[in-house]
Amino acid sequence: MTDYYEVLGVDRSASDEEIKKAYRKMSRKYHPDIAGPEFEDKFKEVNNAYEVLSDPQKRQMFDAGVDPNDPNAGGMGGSGFGDMGDIFSMFTGGAFGGGNGGPTPRTQPGRDSLATVTIDLKTAVFGDTAHVEIKTFGLCQECAGTGCQKGTQPAQCPDCHGQGYAQRVVRTMLGQMMTTAPCERCEGHGTVIENPCPSCLGHGRVRTTRNVGVSVPAGVANNTRLRLANQGEVGENGGVAGDLYIDIRIAQDDTFTRDGDNLHCWIQVPMSWAVLGHDLEIDTFDGKQSVSVPAGSQPDDTVTLKNLGVTHLNNKNERGDLVAHIAVKIPTKLTDDERKLMEQFAEKHDADAQHVAVSARPTTGTKKGFFSKLKDALR
């Protein structure tokens, strides 16, 4: 058997770092591109040595006298030896009476679950309780998670006598060895359920549909994921439930749009209101609120209503603003009398706006009058 320690030039007590350092040195020394093609076999030998000594399990097997790179060590084909896992288990304690740590408990923790709930914008503003229906495993109520019929309990496995594992003899290159494996009859649990519960068939849990209440915090953002501890899938035989994760989706609102913690809406007003000013009421999430449209308002001007926006997620006492955008409704059809009146007003009010300035970007200090825009639109 090749001595891989000797190939790399290290002691048997060498650390992982020392082995890695020696490998780098030897691989550079015998690389065919550097040393020549005649050292190709030596280079492969160095790589094989590092492959074994850098893997803790393979190194442990090699130290015990088994070469992991030896095709006959795996017990494949007609060699008659046990498989490599059996040989390795022999050297890690399984073959010398140490067992596998005892039987595997039937009670296992449940997995996490994921669900999605859609809320409206108002719920995101103020917070509320949302409800989501989930289908998952729940505790079997008939057997309370034991998996057994009422009045019965698991019995000791007659094959492994409660140990959860069975011993068997295999032939290896070192002779006959004793190995251990989970008992096939009890699947490693050490007990068998002779009279399983008819509802859960011995699993201690059943498929259920539950309605779960989700406390949605005020100010929650779209696509936020909430965690509900122990609200997920119940484990086998009454094991502790996993967590339930809820993805929050916020539905589009017909009146308001959200930008961070601010809400935006658009108010369509007649042109006379924009020119002369007007007070009106709008519906908000806080009820009806008064909005004063200033005289001379231009399209896309805004009116800000303080503290009527979304609640700050980290400060429940503060909220964003509600920004109302002014959308001026300009008539597209005028009677003859209306057109004459408009033209008379335009001649007096927009006498200096006969020429349109063209610019690559918005001009400053030369804001166009409302009736100039109206006149342009009518043209």
Rank of each mutant, 00 (worst) to 15 (best):
E18A: 00
R225Y: 06
D300G: 00
A353C: 04
A357T: 13
G78P: 01
V275S: 11
V66W: 07
G127P: 06
T363P: 06
G101K: 07
P299S: 05
T208V: 15
L334N: 06
F126V: 11
A218P: 06
A181Q: 14
G369S: 08
P109T: 12
A115Y: 05
G309V: 03
F96K: 14
T136P: 07
D86F: 03
C183Y: 07
V212F: 07
T364C: 01
G287T: 12
V234A: 15
S292G: 05
V117W: 03
M178W: 08
R168N: 13
D112W: 11
G78D: 14
E318D: 11
V132T: 11
T172H: 11
N48G: 12
R207C: 04
E347K: 15
G99K: 10
T255G: 00
A166C: 09
Q268W: 05
V220L: 11
R319P: 03
T257Q: 10
L308P: 01
D63P: 04
G232Y: 13
A49M: 03
T224Y: 04
H264N: 15
M173E: 11
G147R: 11
G77R: 10
A357P: 03
A130I: 09
T180D: 14
R28H: 05
D63A: 14
D352E: 12
S292T: 15
A274D: 07
F91H: 15
P196G: 06
G162R: 01
I326M: 10
H131F: 14
N237F: 11
S215C: 10
Y30G: 00
R339Y: 12
R171V: 15
K42V: 05
T129L: 06
K348R: 11
G98M: 07
P331C: 04
K150M: 10
F256Y: 14
A351C: 06
D70W: 02
P105H: 07
G175F: 10
V7G: 06
D283F: 10
K42W: 01
F96C: 15
S290M: 10
R59C: 01
S89I: 01
W273G: 08
G98S: 08
C157W: 00
V269C: 03
P182T: 04
G213L: 07
G138M: 02
A221N: 14
C140A: 08
H355M: 12
P217V: 05
D279C: 02
I134C: 06
S297K: 10
T180L: 13
K44C: 02
E318H: 13
C160L: 04
K368L: 15
C160T: 09
T364D: 07
P362S: 07
V216L: 10
D33W: 01
I330Y: 12
T257N: 08
T366Y: 05
I87F: 12
T2H: 04
A274L: 08
A124S: 15
T363F: 04
G369E: 03
F62I: 01
W273V: 04
E38H: 08
V7I: 14
P196Y: 05
R168P: 02
T116E: 13
L280P: 02
E343Y: 12
H131G: 06
H312P: 00
Q156N: 09
